[in-house]
Design a protein around this nucleic acid. Structure first.
Length: 154
DNA sequence: ATTCTGACA
DNA sequence: TGTCAGGA
């Protein structure tokens, strides 16, 4: 299964469905904690017109993975972000050489690309929540598996 | 009734 | 991370 296939499948589960209280209940954390994860840039749920958060199935999966990293793998928030910042976004997005050389995300090692400012058009024009770089990093912190899939070596 | 942002014993 | 304020 290619990155494109995975991305396509995930789009279906990317719709806004759960309120923050329901999401918190399902994940087993407080609504406050959920807002904190968002403030840290680990996940960004949809927002209603009145700015209410609505979590998708993907968001829920992502949050479960975050809990695994936090509870079972000895990572803290900073560690999770550092790991996520290692995703080869330039390759996944087929970023032009001159673009990547001027992109902060290409150099950054502690901030995931979706939290970086001043990115080239290929990225600044797309909603990060719909970007494969963001959506793919939901594999429970298994960066190695993520890279294997990316390089199609599974 | 619920959620939002910001603040802090 | 919990909780309270003051709105929406």
């Amino acid at each position: 299964m290619s990155i494109d296939d995975i991305t396509k499948n995930m789009t279906d589960t990317n719709r806004p469905v759960f309120s923050i209280s329901v999401a918190a209940e399902m994940i087993g954390v407080s609504v406050h904690t959920l807002r904190m994860y968002e403030a840290e840039g680990l996940v960004f749920p949809h927002r209603t017109a009145s700015s209410r958060r609505l979590y998708s199935h993907n968001d829920l999966h992502r949050l479960r993975c975050i809990r695994v990293m936090l509870d079972e793998r000895g990572l803290n928030i900073a560690g999770i972000k550092a790991m996520m910042s290692l995703a080869p976004c330039w390759d996944i997005k087929n970023c032009a050489l001159e673009d990547r050389m001027s992109c902060p995300a290409y150099i950054e090692t502690t901030t995931p690309c979706w939290l970086v400012e001043n990115k080239p058009r290929v990225c600044s024009e797309e909603e990060c929540r719909n970007c494969p770089v963001y959506m793919e990093l939901t594999l429970c912190g298994n960066m190695k598996l993520f890279l294997k899939r990316h390089w199609k070596q599974v």
